Computed example of a mutant assay.
Amino acid sequence: MADIVDMGELRRRLGRTGVWLSSLAATPAARVREAAAEIEELGYATLWVGETPAGREAFTHAALLLSATGRLRVATGIANIYGRDPVAAANGAATLAEAWDQRFVLGLGVSHKPLVTSRGHDYSAPLEYMRDYLGAMDQATFGAPLAETPPRVLAALRRRMLELAARRAQGAHTYFVPPEHTAKARDLIGSAPVLAPEQAVVVETDAGRAREIAREYAALYLSLPNYTKNLRELGFSDDDFADGGSDRLIDAIVVWGEPETIAERIRAHHDAGADHVCVQPLADSVDTQLEHLRLLAPALLTA
């Protein structure tokens, strides 16, 4: 297997703005194919999808999306490293990259303690587990000749995982973060690695309704220590986490309003050092999310 990733080419392939959708994990396969094809047609370069115990397995989900498209890059945001051993992850990524013309990007992460212990795994040392996992991946072999190593990025929020992403992967995928975190992450990882934050958006101009939608989204993440510890380092406190999140916190994490207001937030991430921003429209159905992506495309794809 080749051991070089062209970082300039990786940035070009990812594009400046992509899409992050968790809803596809629970959507019928036929509709998933249609949605991926429409996202490609709209001009978004990369589609990110997550992995949860109740949703689709990350690698087969990626194959479903890749098979439905011709240019779209597909990235896992993230594939849980406790869900498969490192040789399976390395060979799965190589299979997808080889079969679909290097359109697959492997996003790996340690997930969260409740999701890992429920699978019967020990979550006492996730950073060390990730370090050992990457080492085992690097020792894996793959039979088919590859033009390049499938690129990988790590889900990372705080210093040590960001530093590991810079040393042992092609960069970092950050989630549930404001542009201030993007600037901090860029300072930590340096200029060479890719930095790809997720940005949740609400296409709604009424503040009360927009923040209601945003708080529904934020509820899960504000219950997980990985996210609250990171937010504390950015200056948020218990008062911000109470009652579904303060307006200050909600507005920092989720941007709402007209397309141009949303585009300004995407530009803020880019100005802070992001190479690629994956936009997650918050809505109650895939159909509505696609409607919002259509509305946002003219502003976002020039942001």
Rank of each mutant, 00 (worst) to 15 (best):
G8R: 14
L220H: 06
W256N: 03
A299C: 02
S111H: 14
C278Q: 11
H61D: 10
G43Q: 06
A210D: 02
R168W: 13
V87E: 11
I189A: 04
E40N: 09
G190E: 14
V116G: 07
A140Q: 12
A218S: 12
A93W: 03
D243R: 14
E34Q: 12
H173F: 15
R267T: 04
D247I: 06
G135E: 12
A297E: 07
E233M: 01
D6Y: 05
A58Y: 10
E98G: 09
G109H: 11
G50S: 11
A35V: 13
T141S: 09
E212A: 10
V153T: 13
L234T: 11
M7S: 09
G43H: 08
T288D: 08
R168P: 00
E198T: 15
L42F: 14
I253W: 13
T69L: 03
E180I: 05
L127Y: 12
E212D: 03
D243Q: 11
N226W: 03
A192F: 02
A125S: 11
A210G: 03
A62I: 11
A136W: 13
Q289Y: 03
V255A: 08
G18C: 06
I266F: 09
A268S: 07
Y44H: 07
V116F: 14
H270R: 12
A99G: 00
D187Q: 14
S111Y: 09
R232D: 00
L115N: 10
Y82N: 04
I4Q: 15
S191P: 10
G143E: 15
M1H: 15
P178K: 12
E148M: 04
S246P: 15
T141M: 15
E204A: 09
R167N: 01
R73S: 10
A166M: 07
A54L: 03
L154K: 03
